[in-house]
Simulated scan of single mutants.
Amino acid sequence: MNRAHQLRFGDMFALAVFLAVADHKSFRSAAIALEVTPSAVSHSVKALERQLGVRLLNRTTRSMALTVAGAHFATQLRPALASIEEAVRVVGDLGDTPSGTIRINASEGAIQIVLRPILASFLQKYPQVQLDIVNDGRLSDVIDEGFDAGIRLKEAVPKDMIAVQVSDDIRFLAVASPAYFATYGKPTAPRNLLDHECIRFRFDSGSIYRWEFEREGKKEAIDVKGRLTLTDQKLMVEAATDGIGIAFVPDHLTYDGLKSGRLQTVLEEWCPAYPGLCLYYSGHRHVSSALLALISTIRRS
C-alpha cells in the first residue's frame, strides 16, 4: 500500500502542524499559534515528510518555502481539515452545555467597549468555554484567518456576513485643550482644520485616517496635517489634553476630559452618530452554542 494511505488518526496533529507552517511561513510563528515548541513543529513536519516520502518544505537557516508538492498538499489539505474541525464543533455542540473555544478578532476599542464588561460573568457562567481574543486593527478576513467572529463598525462589516449590533451608535468628536484653542482659535468648518495642528491616526495597515464629517447630507473627508501620528486613540486623547493639537476620536474616550474641562469640542454640528459596533460571523458555517451564548450575554449587558 502507498505510504500516503497509511496515515493514522494520530497523524491529524502532524497535518495541522504542517498547515500552520504553510500559512505562517515560519516554524516559530506556527509554534506560537499552536502553543507548542518550535522543536516540536520541526520534528512533526520532518516525520510527516518521511511518512509521505516527499519533501514538503525547502529550508535554509534564514527562510522556509513550500515545495511544489508542499504547496499542492496544503491546497488540498486546508478544506479537508476545515471540514473535520467543523464536524468536531457540530458534534461538540450536541451537548447540553456550551463548550469549546471561541476565537474573536476585534480592535482594542471594540474589546474595551463590547467584551471587557462581560468577560468575568461570561467565563464564570460557562466554565467549559474558552475565549481567544485577538486585538487586531487591520480589518482582517476573519474566515480566512480562522476566527469564529469579528467585531467592527457596522459600515465595515463585509456584506456576506451576519451582523448583530452589540453597542450603541458611535460618534466621533474633534477635541483639543482650552489652551490650544485660546492660542490658535477654533475651526468653524472642516476645511479650517487644514490650518491647525491635528493629531493623526494610522491604521495597522499603514494608511492614515481621513477625518470624516457630515452635515445636512453634505459629507467632507479631510486629510488633516500634523506632526504627531499615533496608532492608539487613548494616546491621541492624552496628546490633545496636553495641548499638542486637535484629535478626532470616539466620543466615549472624551467623556472624562469634557466633564473636567480639560477638553473642549469643535465642529459638533458636523459630527453625527453612526451605527455602532457589530459582532459578525459567517452564515455559511455552523454557529456554535458557545458563540450564541456569548452574543446573548453581550446583548443583555
Rank of each mutant, 00 (worst) to 15 (best):
G206A: 07
A110D: 03
E197M: 06
H196C: 10
A182S: 03
I143P: 00
R202K: 09
A174M: 06
E155D: 14
A149T: 07
V175F: 06
R171E: 15
V164T: 02
K154I: 10
A176F: 03
D168N: 12
V114I: 13
Q124A: 14
V166C: 01
E155M: 13
A120S: 15
G206T: 03
A179E: 15
A110E: 02
Y184S: 06
A176C: 03
L119Q: 10
V164Q: 04
T188I: 14
L119S: 06
N192T: 07
S121P: 11
R191S: 14
L153K: 12
S205A: 04
D204S: 10
V114H: 10
K159G: 07
L173I: 10
Q124W: 14
H196Y: 10
S121V: 12
S140N: 12
Q128A: 12
L194S: 09
I118W: 12
P178Q: 03
T183K: 15
L153A: 12
I199G: 00
E108Y: 08
Q128C: 02
L123M: 12
V157C: 06
V114D: 11
Q128I: 04
R152M: 02
L193P: 08
I162G: 09
L123P: 11
L123F: 07
Y180M: 03
L194R: 14
G146T: 00
L115P: 01
Q165Y: 11
L173P: 11
F122A: 02
R152T: 00
L119N: 08
D195E: 13
L119F: 07
P187V: 02
L173E: 10
F181L: 05
G137R: 00
Y180E: 09
R116T: 08
S205H: 03
R138A: 15
N135Q: 14
S177H: 04
E197F: 07
R171A: 13
V166L: 02
V134G: 05
D169T: 11
A120D: 15
V142D: 00
D168G: 12
L194C: 08
R152H: 05
L194D: 10
L139M: 10
S177E: 06
G146D: 02
V142I: 14
P127R: 09
D136Y: 01
I162A: 10
A179I: 12
D144Q: 11
D160A: 09
A176I: 02
A110F: 01
K154N: 15
R191P: 06
T188W: 14
D160Y: 11
D141C: 01
R152F: 01
K125P: 04
I162Y: 01
G185L: 05
E145A: 05
